[in-house]
Design a protein around this nucleic acid. Sequence first.
DNA 1: TCCGCATAAATATGCGCATAATTTGAACAT
DNA 2: ATGTTCAAATTATGCGCATATTTATGCGGA
Lengths: 148, 148
Amino acid sequence: MPNGNHEKRRDAIRQLLLKGPAETQAWLVATLAADGHNATQSSVSRDLRELGAIKTARGYELPADNQAGDEQVAAVAGLLRTMQAAGPNLLVVKTAIGAAQRVALAFDRCNWPEVVGNIGGDDTVFVATESSIAQKNLITRIEHSARS
Amino acid sequence: MPNGNHEKRRDAIRQLLLKGPAETQAWLVATLAADGHNATQSSVSRDLRELGAIKTARGYELPADNQAGDEQVAAVAGLLRTMQAAGPNLLVVKTAIGAAQRVALAFDRCNWPEVVGNIGGDDTVFVATESSIAQKNLITRIEHSARS
DNA sequence: TCCGCATAAATATGCGCATAATTTGAACAT
DNA sequence: ATGTTCAAATTATGCGCATATTTATGCGGA
């Protein structure tokens, strides 16, 4: 394919984010270029999603890796089916039949700041978040944790 | 963006697959072109994934979908009590004592596009919808289905 | 016949481009 | 303060291209 710098570039981004938040994607593009990595804003956008980076007031940051949280979610990753926002502060997570309670418990244990609370039915979990932004960040977080 | 044919093209693919399996992606590309839809193999590949199409010995097929539909709701119509919107995207349905789970299951099976997900408690079902409009449509739909 | 192994066919994917969608910000009104 | 509206800035995404990856198809030797 066009370029196999994929992994290296992502590592570079990770390093940068560890030093401090990144204002904008454009800044990342420029800084990466200075380090010899070529990439467009498109790629950076996709990389950030892949890395599970979250946009905060300061800019893009890597979520403090809550080892415990990731493990909890990873443990039930196989039970997850789909996720969809319902309005600005409700996230609906569909799971394998009968697994919703277990998934809800896992989310609880993560102690994620975005989550106000959640309820599990049979194959559906309702997760209440405090705001629209929290909701979006939560989606990113779950996707990332489930893959790790 | 380059092209907004996205949805239409997918519909076209869906239609084709309903008529019969598609040998290869290349065949789909050609057939779509004949129907006036332009797309490369790349796009078709992604569309097929999006549609959930599966590759069988015959080629690509759509997984069989069970359209139970209104029957499900009609079956539990007698258990419904009241319905009320709670905010723009949550519908609260009260049911006969202990019937909520059954009602929630019926809603699930309907596969209504407005419904993001729902959870049944004891005599209450929370139904999450993606928007205020979806919610209103859903109310209409339930009322109609329950009467039929 | 049944394996490897080479090769071709088919499918999937990284990428940048163009552009859509969303968010931010400023100015003004309520 | 809070809401409203528009425009600019920022971010996200559909798409085709080029190419990587995976899967099917010989073909020769055991």
